[in-house]
Design a binder for these strands. Structure first.
Length: 906
RNA sequence: GGGCGAUUAGCUCAGCGGUUAGAGCGCACGGUUCACAUCCGUGAAGUCACUGGUUCGAAUCCAGUAUCGCCCACCA
């Protein structure tokens, strides 16, 4: 049982509660503690698996908070809610981390060799994996830990092999020599997505090539063609010079040969449309093995494509003195040599976009390699159909445009990586070059083409892009390719929540692979969160040192506060800044809730025994405040349901925050305090009041639970429960929408306004806050019963006592004295005269100031309202309800102005 | 070169066709009333970036402009 005598300390509350949930086995949808209704469809979220070598950052915490919110809501609604946790082996990222550690030990990938390196990686990963999992627990994610998965576990390995084999058989995976993005720093190819275009100022060198005299086969004196290049080292790989076919400057040279410096190779001058005559010199060197455009050009013209770079980015195989130099060293040397030869025509600064490796920041070199590719166009077509048909929805909707654009122009996906940590590509090659793809764990028995024995086959040394296994995540985690019970029950999943920054990397790949391999959309909704930024709006990064550790935040303010802060005021797809102010706001809210509950529990009338079974408040004994509370709870529940249905989670927190703080605590508890202490009331009334507080608080705890699971669970335990309630809030039912009582809402709102106006009048006149002041007041007959029921509370909240009620406005006017403060609520529906203990000129002047201010304000609104109603089109075209409301408003303002004028003239 | 987003109170952000545009923080003034000073009360503070248009009515819809940010793109 939660000890409410103590002050709220999140740390004490949270640790114990997670253990209770685990012990009760409520996380698994089929766990012993589940209260799910098997007739309802299941609700599944497969969490984007965090990197196994990483540590939790705010982005992870946000992800878990949002996903867990949806999961807990679905669970309370009675769905079998599966929140499947996982870890990603993060091939290249993990190797990057481990390589850094090895470097400090004087070791390297090469020094260890593949087997020892992988052994070392497995040890490393074994130590890091628990860190991330423990952190996910602290955030409060209600994961089904019994279904924990890992992208390098056996299930994933099988899924990867089977997926690849099926793609191969469907001719959607192919092996070919192609230009790939090579990162010399990482010694692997990377996908187009991992190349980051970086604007930089380079140099555009103009170099004179010598044209060959066909008669002598030697450079013709005086005949040259000047090419422009930003990468002079690639001269060594040139196999042509291209000009535009319609460029008159070069027409005569087309078809001639030109000598490539240093390489001493004579290559043709060709004509091709790709050349822009206006750029540079209008003549382009063609290096088919190291440039995307040139590669295409080379294919069109049947050019050779010599590779001039080694894996580490050094020049190799050119037979020149540059062999062995790093590419940038070679560049400098070549420029110097060209200049020495008198062939450097110009060198001008040039703004350009350089492709850098997302991981190592090294400059990526296009390079020819024989690798595996996924044929994406047919897959993308199906993915596009999924969103176009609405079978899968992307939120916020605007990202569908980005999605469309990318999938429409998609290029084939290079999935081979020359790394070690990851899933080995299940392709074997026989000495004759035949390819055998097999999903068998032990590999094929024989070459699929020529039947050579397995011993003669060599497996491809490469591994898959880490996103290949991630792309299978929604179904590989549920047992696919086997037709398991989990797969049948929980696939397709429901919502895929992730950051918009990996929509292509991951979401698109899951969609493409999911549709191809399972024939279903892997989820019906993609919810894209924004990124978390620091208080200055900068992206959080280790190098900037502005990364916030969620665990530190949780230690300080609690996971509930962290979750609330991350969800409150955020909208999907929009970045949000995160700082101490938001966290403090959230923690204060948790504290408020704690104290409110403490009050309710402590306010139990003595006639109700401790531990009494929950009772619905007896409708006959409810006062207006109680009915108001119940009606407001119904309205809030309805609004929260609407917000949940539209994934407006920031709106959910706003609604519940306001209902709890500004309605329940500010007014509900204050009204109740008076009524619970009112000796003139019967036992039934006092009990009904208390049961109302319990009932409404119970509703709000349920509504808030998905956002702040720990504190709500702890507090709920301190409230009496219904017989049908489970032991834990996490598996309790989401509240139904109760009945609205609009009449009582209107009346109570008026009386709340009255208290506010009296307080305002007193504060404006600078009367001591603690004074009880004699007050005369007029309340219309129809409001009478409500007023009388709340009179003791109004007296106390307004510190207005004695409170003398007059029967008519005229009687009030006659009884009021000069010096009394004038209070007019809602155009005079309620009026009051508050009598200061002493009158002085200062107070009188302040009072006149206030009334004058009120008057001019009211006059402004009134003239606006009249203008509006004077507009013929408004009256005839606007909906009747709007016009009626405007008329009522005008009438009210007219009264207000009249009364204020009257009062000021006296 | 395309595309997207943002621009609302001093700051951080909600709101995205209907009376007087909201919150938190900050600010000013006042509070030791038995849930909470992680609190309570009162208040000040905004031509909703700009220009046009649609509409009875626009912060909200449309078009354009400006500034900032992001994504995509093979011009050497």
């Amino acid at each position: 049982m939660t000890d409410l005598a103590k002050a709220y300390t999140p740390h004490d509350v949270e640790g114990a509660i997670y253990e209770r949930w685990l012990a009760a086995d409520v996380f698994a949808p089929d766990g012993s503690g589940s209260t799910a209704d098997p007739d309802l469809p299941p609700f599944t979220i497969i969490q984007p698996p965090p990197n196994i070598t990483g540590s939790l950052h705010l982005g992870h915490a946000q992800r878990t908070a949002v996903e867990d919110l949806m999961i807990r809501h679905a669970r309370m609604r009675g769905h079998r809610a599966l929140f499947l946790p996982g870890l990603d082996h993060a091939s290249i990222a993990a190797q990057f981390v481990l390589d850094g550690i090895l470097a400090t030990e004087g070791e390297s990938r090469e020094s260890l060799g593949r087997d020892r390196y992988l052994e070392r990686m497995r040890e490393f990963v074994a130590t890091t994996r628990e860190v991330m999992l423990g952190q996910q627990r602290r955030v409060g994610g209600s994961f089904d830990w019994s279904r924990l998965r890992y992208t390098m576990d056996e299930g994933s390995a099988t899924a990867v092999r089977v997926a690849f084999e099926r793609l191969y058989r469907a001719d959607l995976a192919y092996r070919t020599e192609a230009l790939v993005n090579w990162c010399p720093g990482c010694r692997t190819s990377v996908s187009d997505l991992e190349v980051v275009g970086t604007p930089e100022t380079g140099t555009l060198w103009s170099v004179r090539y010598h044209v060959i005299d066909p008669a002598t086969g030697r450079p013709s004196p005086g005949e040259t063609i000047t090419i422009a290049t930003t990468r002079p080292e690639t001269i060594l790989g040139d196999t042509a010079v291209a000009v535009h076919p319609d460029d008159p400057r070069y027409t005569s040279l087309v078809g001639r040969l030109v000598r490539i410096p240093f390489a001493e190779r004579d290559v043709p001058i060709i004509a091709d449309d790709v050349v822009d005559p206006a750029f540079g010199t209008g003549a382009v060197k063609i290096t088919p093995a190291h440039d995307h455009d040139d590669h295409e050009t080379g294919l069109r013209h049947g050019l050779a494509a010599p590779t001039i770079l080694a894996d580490d980015g050094s020049v190799a195989g050119t037979g020149t003195r540059y062999d062995g130099m790093d590419r940038f060293e070679a560049r400098a040397a070549i420029v110097a040599d060209v200049e020495a030869a008198g062939d450097l025509v110009a060198a001008v600064p040039h703004e350009m976009v350089i492709g850098r490796c997302q991981r190592s920041n090294d400059i990526v070199e296009p390079r020819l390699k024989t690798q595996w590719f996924i044929r994406t166009t047919p897959l993308a077509q199906r993915a596009l159909e999924a969103t176009r048909s609405g079978r899968t929805r992307i939120l916020p909707e605007r990202f569908e445009k980005t999605w469309e654009h990318w999938l429409t122009d998609i290029r084939d996906w290079n999935v081979s990586r020359q790394l070690w940590w990851g899933h080995r590509i299940p392709a074997w090659y026989c000495p004759d070059g035949h390819v055998t793809v097999s999903s068998e764990e032990a590999g094929p028995d024989a070459c699929a083409v020529c039947g050579r024995a397995a011993v003669e086959l060599q497996q491809d040394p490469d591994i898959f892009d880490t996103w290949f296994s991630s792309g299978l995540w929604p179904f590989s985690t549920l047992g696919w390719p086997d037709d398991t019970a989990d797969y049948r029950t929980y696939y397709p999943t429901s919502v895929m929540e992730t950051g918009y920054d990996i929509i292509f990397f991951w979401v698109a790949r899951m969609m493409m692979l999911g549709l191809q391999l399972t024939d279903r959309e892997p989820f019906h909704t993609v919810y894209l969160s924004g990124l978390i930024r620091d208080p200055l709006g900068q992206k959080m990064s280790k190098t900037k040192g502005n990364v916030v550790d969620p665990l530190g935040v949780i230690d300080e303010a609690g996971a509930d506060a962290l979750r609330f802060a991350l969800i409150h005021g955020a909208t999907p797809g929009n970045d949000q800044r995160f700082g101490p102010a938001k966290l403090e706001h959230a923690r204060n809210f948790a504290n408020k809730l704690w104290n409110a509950t403490r009050f309710v529990v402590g306010a139990r009338p003595a006639t109700i025994p401790e531990g009494a079974e929950r009772r619905l408040p007896d409708a006959h004994h409810l006062g207006p405040a109680e009915r108001w509370l119940m009606s407001r709870a119904a309205a809030t529940t309805k609004a929260v349901d609407a917000a949940m249905a539209s994934y407006a989670f920031g709106e959910v927190t706003r609604l519940v925050y306001e209902a709890i703080w500004n309605e329940y605590c500010d007014w509900g508890l204050e009204f109740a305090k008076v009524r619970l202490a009112d000796e003139r009331l019967g036992q039934e009334e006092r009990e009904a009041t208390w049961w109302t507080l319990v009932e409404v608080l119970d509703t709000y705890l349920r509504l808030l639970h998905p956002v702040m699971p720990f504190v709500t669970e702890a507090l709920w335990a301190a409230l009496p429960h219904r017989v049908t309630d489970p032991d834990l809030l996490i598996v309790a039912r989401w509240p139904g929408v109760g009945e609205a009582d609009l009449l009582v809402e209107r009346d109570v709102t008026l009386l709340i306004d009255l208290v506010g106006e009296i307080r305002n009048a007193r504060a404006s006149a600078r009367l001591p806050a603690s004074d009880w002041l004699e007050t005369l007041l007029y309340v219309p007959v129809e409001l009478g019963p409500t007023f009388e029921a709340l009179r003791p509370a109004i007296e106390r909240l307004a510190r207005a006592r004695p409170l003398q009620r007059e029967l008519t406005p005229e009687a009030l006017g006659a009884a009021a004295r000069p010096g009394d403060l004038t209070v007019i609520v809602a155009g005079g529906q309620i009026e009051a005269a508050v009598r200061p203990k002493t009158t002085d000129d200062d107070a009188g002047a302040l009072e006149r100031d206030r009334l004058t201010r009120d008057l001019s304000e009211a006059e402004g609104w009134l003239s606006a309202a009249r203008e509006r109603l004077a507009n013929e089109s408004f009256v005839s075209r606007a909906p009747a309800a709007v016009v009626d409301a405007a008329r009522a408003r005008e009438a009210e303002l007219t009264d207000q102005v009249e009364k204020l004028r009257d009062r000021l003239e006296r």
